[in-house]
């Protein structure tokens, strides 16, 4: 059983740039994991995501997706069958004028038989809760709905891995929660999720984090491990989750709370313990 994604010494260089956008990165993501890749703008996190499904081909090093090494256009195509991607702008990833047709687009490209496509499209729309919008036009949908339709399009291709490339950054808070919990549900069904983001609250809920800086992996570990060293995180231009920051301030003011708190629930429990 091979890893879902594994990168060894992976580098990517944009033409004309003076340094690598992704610089000798080593990453192992196991099947069924929910991993976040964090980093500020220009840290190389999006580039890394695009290396995972062959949209970019590695300049150096190797990347394996579901056991296939991506080396050229053909292996990239194979990798894409296993590794779907949901992008940032929901408008710019919908091809068809009807939601249903758009969801079918990926399957059509793979050459799936018409009846099977219909079945998969229906199921994918059910999974993301968009069945009633099957015949709507994309521009009539809200941002969150468009993003759900885009996810359905990826799901219909039945990938093992889905990379979300800042898929919630253009949504309002309720849409953001919606998409994140959808990703969590998919993960429970066994889909490996790579969640690229700069929202700490989301990252805090993932199983494992990679924090990128200047194209390199600067920090890694569980959210608790990473955020417990708040200074290191802040040095990388990122905030720690609100509750972690609050816990730190309480501690500085002489209140003895744990320093590895990330969620509101944990803070509640901790404060009740003290009170």
């Amino acid at each position: 059983m091979h890893e879902a994604i594994s990168a060894r010494n992976l580098s990517y260089h944009y033409e004309g740039a003076d340094k690598n956008a992704v610089d000798s990165v080593n990453i192992e993501i196991a099947r069924g994991e929910f991993v976040a890749i964090l980093g500020r703008n220009g840290s190389g996190k999006s580039t890394l995501g695009k290396l995972f499904n062959g949209l970019y081909l590695a300049s150096q090093g190797e990347v394996f997706v579901s056991g296939t090494q991506i080396t050229d256009e053909n292996s990239a195509y194979e990798a894409r069958k296993h590794c779907g991607m949901v992008f940032q702008d929901p408008d710019n990833q919908m091809v068809a004028t009807i939601v249903e047709e758009d969801v079918a687009f990926g399957c059509e490209n793979l050459g799936v038989a018409p009846d099977e496509i219909k079945r998969r499209v229906q199921k994918a729309l059910e999974t993301v809760g968009m069945s009633e919008y099957a015949l709507s036009a994309p521009h009539m949908l809200s941002g969150g709905q468009k993003q759900r339709a885009a996810i359905a399009g990826v799901l219909a291709m039945q990938p093992d891995i889905i990379v979300f490339d800042e898929s919630t950054s253009m949504l309002d808070p309720s849409g953001r929660r919606d998409i994140f919990s959808l990703a969590q549900r998919l993960n429970e069904r066994g889909v490996t999720i790579v969640w690229i983001t700069h929202f700490m609250e989301e990252a805090a809920l993932c199983q494992r984090l990679y924090v990128m800086d200047g194209g390199r992996v600067a920090l890694q570990g569980t959210p608790r491990e990473v955020f417990s060293d708040a200074e290191a995180v802040q040095k990388l231009g990122l905030d720690v989750p609100d509750m972690t920051a609050l816990a730190r301030q309480l501690k500085q003011n002489g209140i003895d709370v744990r320093s590895d708190i990330i969620t509101i629930d944990e803070m509640e429990v901790e404060l009740c313990r003290l009170a």
Partner: peptide, 11 residues
């Protein structure tokens, strides 16, 4: 971006 999204969906 659309071209990239289409490619990502095996077009």
């Amino acid at each position: 971006e659309l071209a990239m999204a289409m490619e990502a969906r095996c077009y």
